[in-house]
Every structure is written in structure tokens, then in C-alpha cells.
């Protein structure tokens, strides 16, 4: 239980998807012009990550890892299917995103309209595939740990995008040099937020 909580807190603050690993930057930069769309997209990412990471964990554990297929019979014990990870993970992610798209369209048509193309683009958001690949690399020990990691990463991404959206809304009234306006200043502010988040490295849980 302690371990799960540890992983959860670490993945929100210390291993933040945006500030430590730069995952999901493209939609982060494109959607963060207003807080409302950012909240919508952020919640969608939390949901997708929270589901795909545990499912991919199970897939990895019982089918893909070297030796994973031993439950099917002793002759499969040294089959290593890990090279199929990319394609299978993407397949799971694409189907989950399709599901989220249908749910959002049903329950909040205005959010669906305002997110536009960026909702299906969650499927190619590097944060989602990155979450599964990091889970595979870090070799978590249980579904609980994998879920904690997935939800935590999603919440970390959500914090980052809502934060930058709030700042960008305010900065429209500031005197930014023309060449820095828009994209340039967003990069620099994200860098500064990254330095701020580094202060969490000292947390000992």
C-alpha cells in the first residue's frame, strides 16, 4: 500500500510527464490557449492513461514479456514477444480513445466540439504511449502499482496543462516582445515551471 501511494505521488510531481519527460508537448502547446479546453483535454488524458496503463501491464505480464506465455504450456516458456509491444499498445490506446470520444460526444457535446481534432489525437499523444512504455521499462510488480502510475501520470499532465493555460490567458495582457509572442514565451514559461517542479525532487516518502 505504501509502495502504491509512493508511486502515485512520485508520478504526479517528481516524474511529471511534461516537466521531467516532455511527453505530450504538442497537444500541451496547442490546446493550452484557454483554461476550459485544457481542463477537458486534461481529464480525457487522465481517463485514458488510468485505463491503458493497467491493461497494457496485464498484456505485458501475461503475453509479451520473455517467458510470459508459460501459463499456456511449458513449450512456450522461452517465447519473447516484446517486439510486438509497440503495435499492441497502440491498438489498445486507439480503442480506448475511440471509447472516450464516444462518451464525451454523448455527455458533453460542447466539450466535444471545442476539443475538435485534439480528442482523437490523444491516440498519438506521446504521453499515453510513453506511460505504457515507462511502465514496461520500470517493471512494476502489480496491477495496483501500474494503475497508480497511470493515474498519477495523467494527473501530473493535467496539472501542467491547466497551469500553463491559466498563465497564457493572463499573459495576453503583458508586453511580450513580438518575436517571443505565442510559442516562444510558452516554451520559456514551461521551462521555468519545470525548474519550479524540480523542487519536489527533495520529497522523501
Amino acid at each position: 500500500m505504501q509502495e502504491i501511494f509512493n508511486i502515485f505521488i512520485k508520478s504526479i510531481f517528481v516524474d511529471n510527464m511534461v516537466f521531467a519527460y516532455f511527453l505530450g508537448m504538442c497537444s500541451y502547446l496547442a490546446v493550452s490557449k484557454t483554461v476550459n479546453t485544457s481542463v477537458g483535454l486534461g481529464l480525457a488524458v487522465v481517463f485514458v492513461l488510468g485505463i491503458t496503463v493497467p491493461v497494457d501491464y496485464l498484456l505485458n505480464e501475461y503475453i509479451l514479456k520473455p517467458g510470459a506465455l508459460s501459463w499456456a504450456g511449458a513449450e512456450f516458456a522461452d517465447v519473447d514477444l516484446s517486439f510486438l509491444s509497440f503495435i499492441l499498445f497502440i491498438a489498445i490506446i486507439a480503442s480506448m480513445v475511440q471509447l472516450v470520444e464516444m462518451i464525451v460526444e454523448k455527455f458533453s457535446p460542447s466539450l466535444y466540439a471545442s476539443l475538435g481534432i485534439f480528442l482523437p489525437l490523444i491516440a498519438v499523444n506521446c504521453a499515453i504511449l510513453g506511460g505504457s512504455l515507462f511502465m514496461q521499462e520500470r517493471d512494476y510488480q502489480s496491477v495496483g502499482q501500474a494503475t497508480a502510475f497511470g493515474l498519477g501520470s495523467g494527473i501530473g499532465w493535467f496539472l501542467a496543462i491547466v497551469g500553463i493555460a491559466a498563465i497564457r490567458e493572463k499573459i495576453r495582457y503583458s508586453n511580450v516582445p513580438p518575436a517571443l509572442r505565442g510559442l516562444g514565451i510558452t516554451f520559456i514559461i514551461t521551462g521555468l515551471m519545470g525548474i519550479a517542479f524540480m523542487s519536489f525532487l527533495g520529497i522523501k516518502l
Partner: peptide, 15 residues
């Protein structure tokens, strides 16, 4: 560290 990469890109965009 990661943050400086972001700031470096910001400066490149500026130039």
C-alpha cells in the same frame, strides 16, 4: 536538466 532544453528552444524561436 530538462527545463533548460525548453528555454533553449524558446531562445532559438526568438532568434
Amino acid at each position: 536538466l530538462p527545463p533548460m532544453a525548453l528555454i533553449t528552444v524558446g531562445v532559438i524561436i526568438w532568434i
